[in-house]
């Protein structure tokens, strides 16, 4: 017999290992009700609405009535191993913690495994919490476990993506810089005649180099402006589409979980509309966050300025190549080659 005090703790239903085929898992975690497996129901000729009498084997005077509110089927294959016969999930009666506490309160000889789960807002508080519960009287036979490793392994992938994105950016900048230098060199070679003529009629090397740099900077700023404009426009659309897809997935997942618990979408949706996140929180203990279904603006001027800075820096660096070329060109040689 297993007792829970929230939907979220009944992992087998959340994960889809169990699915309600008749009735539902009651959201009333205080009354004497339960759900049983399809196998247990058929072998004992039990159906929805029937009651089960639970007897205290050490004191048969203590009998407790449990109302069957739901019958579930197991989606995973149960073990045929005889040694696991008594722990076979088909024998499980799923009820609530209050009922278990009622049984335990009448006979001290009965034992139970209690696994309370606490959700903390911040992982930094785990140690403080462990110390606090010990101070408040947690027996030395109990220990406080956490799932930090599990959470960190999940967030590690995000960290890895961040590192990958940064490395990708650096490589892109290096390759971009090299490409810019090469393009500049080609540009200079193609405009060698123009350089020769301008130098012959007295344009100074510094002025000529500066002119080439200004041309590149204008192209760079124009390209960045166009790119940022298109990017900011497209990114809102793309982000909203991705968000819509995420919301649809989330709703779908939530709907499936609801079905596992034997609850209809309509009923739940109505409740959601009534109290928004409160209803979800009470059942699934998810954090109280406001949901976003549209992103209005993503243009971050700081990032735009950084991009512009990188662009200008790359342009100036790549212009150095053209400046060196210009300083080495002899106008006489260029014009002779042309002739």
């Amino acid at each position: 017999m297993i007792g829970y005090n929230s939907y979220e703790d009944i992992k087998d239903f959340v994960n889809g290992n169990y699915t309600i085929i008749e009735g539902e898992v009651s959201e009333d975690f205080n009354s004497s009700n339960c759900v049983i497996s399809e196998e247990l129901a058929s072998l004992n000729d039990l159906s929805l609405g029937d009651s089960i009498t639970v007897l205290d084997t050490k004191n048969e005077k203590n009998a407790y009535e449990l109302l069957i509110t739901g019958i579930y089927k197991e989606n995973t294959e149960s073990s045929d191993n005889i040694s696991k016969m008594f722990s076979n999930s088909a024998n499980e009666i799923i009820t609530n913690v209050n009922f278990i506490k009622t049984i335990l309160s009448t006979n001290e000889d009965l034992s139970a495994t209690i696994t309370p789960t606490f959700i903390l807002n911040n992982k930094e508080n785990i140690d403080k919490f462990a110390n606090e519960v010990k101070v408040k009287g947690l027996s030395e036979y109990y220990k406080v476990d956490d799932n930090i490793e599990e959470i960190e392994s999940a967030t590690n992938s995000i960290k890895n993506v961040k590192i990958f994105a940064f490395n990708f950016l650096v490589i892109t900048l290096i390759i971009g810089g090299v490409v810019l230098i090469v393009i500049n060199m080609i540009n200079i070679r193609e405009r060698k005649y123009e350089i020769g003529v301008l130098r012959t009629i007295g344009m100074k090397k510094t002025k000529l180099s500066f002119q080439f740099m200004i041309e590149l900077l204008i192209i760079c700023i124009l390209s960045l402006s166009i790119g940022a404009g298109i990017g900011s426009f497209a990114s809102v659309k793309v982000a909203n589409n991705l968000l819509a897809s995420e919301i649809a997935n989330s709703k779908n997942e939530y709907s499936n979980i609801n079905k596992n618990f034997g609850r209809s979408d309509d009923k739940d949706m109505n409740e959601n509309n009534k109290s928004d996140s409160e209803s979800i929180r009470s059942k699934f203990r998810v954090a109280d966050i406001s949901q976003v279904d549209t992103i209005n603006a993503v243009v971050d001027f700081k990032i735009l300025a950084e991009l512009l800075g990188i662009g200008i820096l790359l342009t100036i660096l790549s212009s150095l190549a053209s400046m060196i070329s210009i300083s080495k060109f002899s106008p006489l040689t260029i014009l002779k080659e042309r002739s």
Binding site: E194, G196, V197, R199, T200, I201, G202, M203, K204, K205, L335, R338, S339
Partner: peptide
């Protein structure tokens, strides 16, 4: 020499060298 070329001398080439 840049000032010399763009102020005191004008150069005309056989192949014109216009842009």
């Amino acid at each position: 020499l840049d000032t010399y070329r763009n102020t005191y001398t004008g150069i005309v080439f056989q192949s014109y060298n216009l842009l």
